[in-house]
């Protein structure tokens, strides 16, 4: 999307805005009341989110280890230097990125298929939607435990299908595969649900018209359904990518980071809560936030104006 189109799009929004006439006394007083009513919520948000985030940034610039309280001091960006020059960080980042990209891609394809199935089903629609949602309703830790048992030789039904002596959770590549499988199984329903909402945006007449014009199912999917669903796809992919990047519980149960399967969140957790090195741990947390922000930024840029909140404008343009 080029800059001109964006500013063009913004134009109607400001034109639609209220004329800048002086407000009446009643309106002003209502504004004040609105501000007052919002204030407690804003204050609570400041206390519970802005303060910890600010404190984490502050800690990340300190040498701050609970075990050596008298050595605390300001060290600038040294903690970031330690993290960024550590092989553990880059390995965890690579592992996390692989898990994120592969699992979200698989989830998107299966999720879309499930969404189409749910949307098109004529009989037992409620039943199918309920069944599809079951994995999502199971607590991740519980599901992770059942995967762990299933893949443990001598105990699990899935391990029993493998040749004797193969333990998939003990090898880097296959363990990552099992983690991705557990993630996909667990969160595909969520993806399907978000995409289902998007499918409802596609007008039936349009599809029927295309069909009459000779468009086959694949053409209808790629030329009509997917473009029309773009906002829903953006939301679904964005949510799942950010979620997948912060993966913790599945890995914690399945391998606890053995064989190089630790994610960046686990690395942060270990440095914060196992060794009490709050400086390094906070630096890792801040870096995770930065990476997540980059993801969000790239997504919004890629999908351009279909970002949430811009939908009205786009609709009007059409």
């Amino acid at each position: 999307m080029t800059m001109t189109t964006e500013s063009d799009l913004r134009a109607p929004a400001s034109a639609r805005g209220h004329p800048r006439a002086p407000l009446s006394q009643g309106a002003r007083s209502e504004h004040r009341l609105a501000a007052l009513l919002c204030a407690p919520a804003a204050l609570v948000i400041l206390v519970v989110t802005a303060y910890p985030i600010g404190y984490a940034i502050y800690l990340s610039l300190q040498r701050f280890d609970l075990r050596f309280p008298e050595q605390s001091s300001f060290v600038g960006l040294a903690n970031y230097g330690s993290v960024l020059t550590s092989g553990h960080w880059w390995q965890a980042l690579t592992t996390t990125l692989i898990i994120t990209v592969v699992s979200v891609a698989i989830e998107f394809v299966i999720g879309l298929a499930l969404a189409l199935a749910m949307y098109r089903t004529l009989i037992g629609r409620g039943l199918i939607r309920t069944v599809v949602l079951i994995p999502y309703s199971i607590i991740t830790v519980v599901a992770a435990f059942s995967w762990q048992f299933a893949w443990t030789p001598g105990k699990g039904y899935l391990a029993a299908l493998l040749p004797q002596g193969v333990a998939p959770l003990t090898d880097h590549t296959s363990a990552i595969g099992v983690i991705i499988l557990a993630e996909v199984w667990k969160t595909t329903p969520f993806m399907a649900l978000l995409l289902l909402v998007g499918l409802a945006l596609v007008p039936d007449e349009l599809l029927r018209a295309a069909q009459i014009d000779g468009a086959g199912p694949w053409k209808r999917l790629t030329k009509i359904i997917l473009p029309m669903m773009k906002p829903a796809i953006l939301v679904a992919l964005l949510f799942r990518t950010l979620d997948a990047f912060r993966i913790f519980d599945n890995i914690y149960i399945l391998t606890n980071g053995s064989n190089g399967t630790a994610s960046v969140s686990m690395l942060g957790y270990d440095n914060l809560f196992k060794v009490f090195n709050l400086g390094i741990g906070s630096a890792i947390s801040v870096l995770i936030v930065i990476v997540v922000s980059i993801f969000a930024f790239v997504f919004i840029k890629l999908f351009g104006v279909v970002a949430p909140g811009a939908e009205d404008d786009e609709r009007r343009l059409r």
Partner: peptide, 8 residues
């Protein structure tokens, strides 16, 4: 020992 660096 000196609590330096990142632990895995």
């Amino acid at each position: 020992v000196n609590s330096e660096g990142v632990v895995p």
